[in-house]
Amino acid sequence: MSEHVVHLIELYLDEELQGEERQQFEAHIAVCAECRARLENERRFTALLAQARPLYDVPESIRRRVEQLGSRVSRRRVWPWAVGAAVVALVALAIRIYVPDATHRLLAERMPPGSEFARLAADTHQRWVRGQLPLEIRSQSPEEISAWFADKVPFNLKLPSFRELPDQPKPYQLEGARLVGFKNDYAAYITYRMRNRPISLLVTSETVARPSGGEEIRSQGLVFHFEEINGWKVLTWSDRGLTYALVSDFEERGQASCMVCHPSASEQRKLEDLRR
């Protein structure tokens, strides 16, 4: 059988033969047993490959990740200020006139606490603790993890290194990191373990999220927001262009977890304001 005929068979099966060429081919197939047999063989081979689909199952983690990205497609169309403000004012007025006070209180109670970023941090920490969140990089090296984030997040993230003293064991262990979708971009998620208890640190740019809600605590020129979300202690704050959320189950406001970036005793004393 000539290569040309084999080629035509392939084009025919791939729906690439059209018009007169297709008609001529079909007329030939009708009278040529050898070509017909070859066509059937090729057809079965193609069907075999199609049956193999999909070759790989999609991991649940990637499904969830892309769905989160999808729900955050940027709605960057900016309403003209006048229209937007007018709508907000109208809605507020409507609520004030038509909604009784009791309903106001009910709505206020039902509003989830804290900022969206804090809630994401708590949720991500919970998934990590439950073993539902695979890490994308496992390393105990802050330098390696910082380098891993370098081309993946739109901000400069440098994790501090713990300077070990000869007779002082390292109080915490860096475990690894991954990307977490937030507001149509990525936040950096880093996980630690201290006293065998997990600590999560979520970092994003200050332009994307700013801490809000919860209990405000001023310390060392920073404003910390503390809240308990689903039983986790969540501290959020902004500093030098980045917003952080630290999640743990440590006592009081979870300030012991601050050691992952402020390990020295003198730095720990500076966090006195965070103690209850």
């Binding site: 990637i62 892309v66 990205l69 999808g70 955050r72 940027s74 149509n184 971009d185 990525y186």
Partner: peptide, 9 residues
């Protein structure tokens, strides 16, 4: 896959 969707969105 994640990078593809991020760029696409």
């Amino acid at each position: 896959v994640q990078e593809t969707y991020l760029r696409a969105f």
